[in-house]
Computed example of a mutant assay.
Amino acid sequence: MFKGLGGLGDMAGMMKKAQQMQKDMAELQEQLDTMTVTGESGAGLVKATATAKGNLTGLDIDASIFQPSEKEVVEDLILAAIKDAQAKAQEKAQSEMQKLTEGLGLPADFKMPF
């Protein structure tokens, strides 16, 4: 590209890649707000839906578990479903981030600070 300027040609290419990655990263952050995952517990009796950023957006509880004597069980199922949704959200975000950084030659276990 800039023949005769030593490593400046490579530097310009790196800067262009960095700018593109910054743009792609911003787009990904917006997409993570619209991607959803669903966590479950109790064989699907309780389902929690969250964005890929981990924000809880919905909770579905099967009516069959509403018995006063089962209050603690229901609470545990709700917490388990939420934790499952949050774990899946984190996995989804990492997966999408890995797709984005794949072409940069970064180590597979490299974690971005987002």
Rank of each mutant, 00 (worst) to 15 (best):
M1S: 14
Q90V: 11
K16P: 07
S41G: 01
N55E: 15
G42K: 04
M25V: 04
G39K: 00
Q22C: 10
Q67N: 15
Q90A: 12
D33I: 03
A93M: 05
D10W: 08
M1Y: 15
S69M: 12
A81T: 01
L104Q: 13
D60W: 11
G13F: 07
K16R: 15
K99M: 01
K71F: 13
G39Y: 00
Q90W: 14
L56C: 06
F2G: 10
I82D: 05
D24W: 09
L8I: 15
L77K: 01
K47C: 02
A87L: 09
E102R: 09
G39R: 01
A18R: 08
Q98Y: 04
L5C: 02
K99W: 05
S64V: 05
K92D: 03
P68A: 01
A63E: 15
E91H: 07
K17E: 11
S69Q: 14
K17F: 12
Q98V: 00
D76V: 01
K71W: 11
L79Y: 12
M14A: 10
A63Q: 15
G105T: 06
M15T: 11
K99I: 01
V46H: 00
F66L: 04
D84G: 00
D60T: 07
K71M: 15
A26N: 13
K92Q: 09
A93I: 00
M25C: 06
M112N: 00
F2L: 13
L8Y: 14
K83A: 11
M14L: 13
G7P: 13
